[in-house]
Nucleic acid binder design. Structure first.
Lengths: 248, 248
DNA sequence: ATAGAACCTTGACCCAAATCAAAGAGAGCA
DNA sequence: TGCTCTCTTTGATTTGGGTCAAGGTTCTAT
């Protein structure tokens, strides 16, 4: 499976794997050629570490398929997820040598990587790429801050509803349909990973999901397959009208 | 009082008010002249709103003196601070038309503003400025994510200790001395503002400050004037060895 | 000086979510 | 078919921090 299977090609930029959130909506032939030269693929198994916080990170990358998470931990093991990488998301920090978080694959993961040095050189010589990167970073910052509001002020139920709403919307976006009625998708995270994302325990996550199910706000088939019969009703439980916004 | 009183001038860039965290460590004469043409000062009284979330924001700016906060709120009034602007901090979003958060002055505030349009033009034609802005935005993102760990996983006591440690370090940095022993500074925030920053209630903030005082980890004179007799001991209460990191 | 407002502290009580514990459900495999 | 491992659910109990309430401080204005 390649990114082609997951994301429809942009006609002007068919072979650029990071065209969706990154540099390529305005790439010309020369730039595409340059990107082609410095790109390579890496795949990871579910549970595998992509990079440890503090390690040297000599690439930037785009998620082709699978899910990765960015996490931070305290010394005693308490962990907080600070970002979730879904297909088409970009990760990497031009101008930074070391990774600031743990990045790990929660499912099998395929990433399209670019060597950092040449990527940076390209960025410095190509204004629209630097602009695009700044724009992306500002998007991430907005998402991180929206998540701060969730972590600091929302109840457990609101947190769960917000997460479900965001995953549902991301899923709908990937499938190229935006709807506000019935939505069906698979949760890409374990209860524990959700807990780490929301600043809760896994038991609380489980209980709140059960409660939403009991009340008919969601339907569950197995542990992961979710049907949302009425998206607006779910959104209503999320504590705001926020149209999504998730860290990275 | 001008920024000159607060921040030492960089010799190569004496008149550029955003030299410290923004664009000017490598500015040449021509660029300085351009900045001079588009800059203006705005002052605000304590409690005044600088801008409302969603409003058009046609400037970028640097804090000269005073404190400003970035906040987000839910419809029912629960509010979460997502950033704290201290002297020398930069605020603004090249390429964005509308403000994503409320910005308000918590003390009297002086900002050095640049009209956005010409600032952006300058950025697009000057590679080192775009790079510097990207770097700054990545710093903010790291700080926001560090704050996510605090909001999601730290106890009330650890939150307070973390905030005190950060304010102490920022204060020491402005005074151009870095120390790890005795530190003396004034809290720039009310108990309520601290609560909004930390995702707590003001009563809990007050109780935890009292507890730290009772145990001799801090000394208080009045409500705001703090002495930290042993900085390492305070840091120890913060739950990690983190060397600061605060949302902008 | 005095009144009022804004801010802060402390106490009593309560509750949402954490913790501790045990048992179910699926998936893979021998 | 049953075994085992991982993930999930549910129950019982505890607790950190929220809520409600009453005073205390400090500052400003008169």
């Amino acid at each position: 499976m390649t990114f082609e299977d997951i994301l429809p090609a942009s006609p002007s930029c068919a072979d650029c794997p990071i065209r969706h959130r990154a540099v390529c909506s305005r790439c010309d032939e020369r730039e595409l050629g340059q990107l082609e030269e410095i790109k390579y693929y890496r795949s990871f198994e579910a549970g595998q570490m992509v990079i440890w916080s503090g390690d040297k990170m000599d690439f930037v990358a785009s998620v082709v398929s699978g899910i990765a998470t960015l996490t931070q931990t305290l010394e005693d093991g308490r962990t907080q997820m600070v970002g979730l990488l879904l297909p088409s998301d970009f990760v990497g920090r031009p101008g930074r040598e070391f990774a600031p978080y743990n990045i790990s694959a929660t499912t099998d993961l395929l990433m399209c990587c670019f060597r950092k040095k040449p990527f940076e050189e390209m960025m410095f010589s190509t204004p629209h790429i630097a602009q695009r990167l700044l724009e992306m970073t500002l998007d991430e910052l907005d998402s991180a801050r929206e998540w701060m509001l969730l972590l600091g002020r929302k109840t457990a139920r609101e947190k769960i509803a917000s997460l479900l709403a965001i995953v549902a919307q991301r899923d709908a976006a990937v499938k190229l349909r935006t709807q506000r009625g019935r939505m069906i998708f698979d949760l890409p995270l374990t209860r524990e990973a959700m807990a780490d994302y929301l600043g809760l325990t896994l038991e609380t996550v489980s209980r709140q999901i059960s409660a939403l199910k009991r009340e008919g706000i969601i339907e569950l088939e197995g542990k992961r397959h979710v049907t949302v019969p009425d998206f607006d009703r779910l959104l209503n439980e999320a504590g705001d009208d926020a149209d999504g916004g998730l860290p990275t």
